[in-house]
Amino acid sequence: MAKQSSRFEYFKSQHIPELTVLQAALSDFSYDRHAHEEYAFGVTLSGRQDFFSGGQFHRSPPGNVIQFNPEQVHDGHPGDGSTLGYVMLYVPSAQLEASFADAVGCERAGGFRSSETLIADPSLRHAILELARLVTDQVGSRIDQEYALYQMATRLVQRAGKFQPGSTVSRPDALLQQAKGYIHAHLEADLSLDEISQAAHLSKYHFLRLFRQQFGITPHQYVLNCRINAARSALEAGVVPNEVAFRYGFVDLSHFNRRFKRIYGMTPYQYQRSVTN
């Protein structure tokens, strides 16, 4: 019997801007190490989900929740020889942090980060699956989806025990954030390591060491990751893949296709068709 190929389906919410749902079945696919700009919440449905993140190797069995903060580097692949089935929500920071603020009764909740990556929590799992169902089946109203998102945020705040909107940023962290800001502002330029390290006011080699130690990927991998994420947004806006590839510095469409597929499981054209139909 031929081995089943992997499948990926993306769905955009009709009610909550930029909210995306992924339904995936992986049998012969491994994600490259990458990070998303959004919060990501997944539920392992079948098989076992193995991945590296936060300096640790994790194994997620069926029924388990996986949570990634924005820009939390991770990879992923099936872990036990069987097909891995899972659902993942990608929630923009502004949307989720508004729900965090409502949950804790304050005006703003920017910077909220969960310290947990693997979570065994039936209430949180139910809220994630309910929101995914509403989006993928295109049922319910905006308030239904917002309520499911609010339930997710409330449960996360409950698990945290108390709300801590942010912590003091060390000088090295602040310098690395300057470098990140420079990268995001120049994604369409031909960036060099010298330029990025100068933006962080660090020597090139000190910068390289600090960056990899802090984020788990090299500056080059981070630039590529940011370009892929920006390309995804352009594809969702209807820009044709050839133009997106040229805009973000890929050698050609074939190179763009390979890089994009290692993170999203399908070619840019396939992704664009799936979320704009």
Rank of each mutant, 00 (worst) to 15 (best):
A2M: 08
K3E: 02
K3V: 06
S5G: 12
S6L: 13
E9I: 02
E9A: 10
Y10R: 10
Y10W: 08
F11L: 03
K12L: 13
K12G: 09
Q14R: 04
Q14L: 05
H15T: 01
H15Q: 03
H15S: 05
I16E: 05
V21M: 07
S30P: 12
S30M: 11
Y31P: 08
R33G: 15
R33W: 11
H34S: 12
A35F: 14
A35Q: 12
H36I: 06
E37Y: 10
Y39P: 15
A40N: 03
F41S: 04
L45N: 14
S46R: 12
S46H: 05
G47M: 05
D50A: 03
F52Q: 09
H58V: 09
H58S: 09
S60W: 02
P61W: 01
P62Q: 04
G63K: 00
Q67T: 07
Q67I: 07
H74V: 07
H74A: 09
H77P: 13
P78R: 01
G79M: 03
S82F: 08
S82K: 11
V87C: 03
M88Q: 04
L89R: 01
S93K: 00
L96M: 04
A98F: 08
A98K: 08
D102P: 13
G105H: 08
C106G: 14
G110W: 05
R113T: 12
T117Y: 05
L118C: 12
A120T: 12
L124E: 01
R125C: 10
A127N: 04
A127S: 10
A127P: 03
I128P: 04
R133S: 11
V139C: 12
I143R: 05
Q145V: 04
L149F: 06
A153W: 04
T154V: 00
T154C: 03
R155P: 13
V157R: 07
Q158P: 13
G161W: 12
G161Q: 14
P165K: 03
T168Q: 06
S170C: 09
R171V: 08
R171T: 01
P172L: 06
A174Y: 01
A174P: 07
L175R: 14
Q177E: 06
G181M: 06
H184M: 13
A185V: 02
A185N: 14
H186K: 11
H186A: 07
L187E: 07
E188R: 11
E188Y: 00
L191N: 15
S192T: 10
L193A: 07
D194A: 14
D194K: 14
D194Q: 13
S197F: 02
S197N: 09
Q198P: 06
F211D: 03
F211V: 06
I217G: 04
P219A: 05
P219V: 01
H220P: 04
V223N: 04
L224D: 01
R227L: 10
N229S: 09
A230V: 08
S233H: 08
A237G: 10
V239T: 10
P241S: 00
P241W: 00
P241K: 03
N242W: 00
N242Y: 00
V244N: 07
V244P: 07
R247S: 11
G249I: 03
L253F: 09
S254K: 15
N257L: 09
R258N: 13
R258A: 13
R259D: 04
K261T: 15
I263H: 03
G265Q: 02
G265I: 06
M266E: 11
Y269M: 14
V275N: 05
N277P: 15
